[in-house]
Simulated assay, not measured.
Amino acid sequence: MLSVLLWGLIFVGSLAVLVKASDVFTDSAERIGVGFGISPFIIGVTIVAVGTSTPELVSSVLAVIKGSPEIVAGNVMGSNVTNIFLILGISAIVGKKMVTSYELANVDLPLFVGSALLLSLMVGDGAFTLPEALLCLACLLVYLLYAVSVERVAEEARDRTMEELEAAGVGHPKKRRLDPRVYLKLFLSVVFLYIGANYTVVSVVKLSEIVGIGTEIIAASAVALGTSLPELVVSVKAAAMNKPELAIGNIIGSNIFNALGIMGISALFGTVVIPETITAFVMPMMIVATLLYFVVIWEKEMTHWEGWMLVIFYAFFLGKLFALF
């Protein structure tokens, strides 16, 4: 009992360190990017977009290196399920009626659904190999190029607006000198990312051995929930501030990066083994969650009742995962 409590505390503590380090890393990298004059849209589609998925990425790569590759699929697919059922559900409950004017159906939703289906087809044989990883990373590159092109158009519109304001003598932006401590924060965040991810993986393996639960199950539930906290904070805040596009888009980008980027990058360090529990239950639940998201968002609005429905689905997911019913 004491060993379970000890490793449970280590798990919670390491997850907290991992998530906090990810937040500091993203903020520091964004500040440095601005300081070097990197375009805001490049920062948006690279540093900020990838930053919220840093906990999943670092913990998954270390899991493969440490010989526990089954954690990767559980973490990735569990995070995608959590993002849709729990985070989107809570966002819809917390916010007002979520109505978006952004045209998701053209590219974003097809890529979102396609990434989940492609991953499911690839892992159906119980393994995720290097050629499959390279194909996923190629698909991710296509998505990033699309995101860059969209952001470029938006930034050009913002630039025209700023030029008009400056011509009228309004809105002269002040340049800020970059604080040297930002570099120290970036370095320390990388160090703590490694420490947090390392002890997260070790504690998951230890808890799995002690309580007799598969590491992939812990990864799909507790690890997935813990590493999805950045997405939870971003989406819920956006919903509360009546910014549904940010809440909805954050989940789309995160799930695409999880399915294509994290799985792809992790497999560069070794073959990712897919346990039967993942292919038999977690993977089908990810597909169901993805299709539900597609249906709910298709008409560009989401109600409180749909939010409660998604949260109930998440409760079912956890209950079934731990054989509670």
Rank of each mutant, 00 (worst) to 15 (best):
S266Y: 05
L207C: 06
Y146K: 14
I252Q: 03
M309T: 11
S189V: 13
N255P: 05
G319T: 14
L88Q: 11
L15K: 14
Y194F: 15
L186V: 12
E155K: 13
M241R: 13
P244T: 10
S68A: 12
F187I: 12
P69K: 05
R31F: 00
A16K: 13
L229C: 01
T129G: 04
A133W: 11
S91P: 09
S28V: 13
V234N: 01
R31T: 14
P55F: 00
L268E: 09
V107Q: 00
G261M: 08
L109V: 11
A133N: 05
T129Q: 13
G67Y: 09
K243M: 13
V201F: 01
L310Y: 03
P284K: 14
L268I: 14
V201K: 09
G264D: 03
M286G: 01
L291C: 07
N83Y: 09
C136I: 15
W305G: 03
A247F: 06
I93K: 05
S53W: 05
W298V: 04
S60H: 06
L292T: 15
G74C: 08
L135D: 07
G169V: 11
V12Q: 00
L229Y: 00
C136P: 10
E164K: 11
F36N: 12
I10R: 11
T52Y: 01
L193N: 02
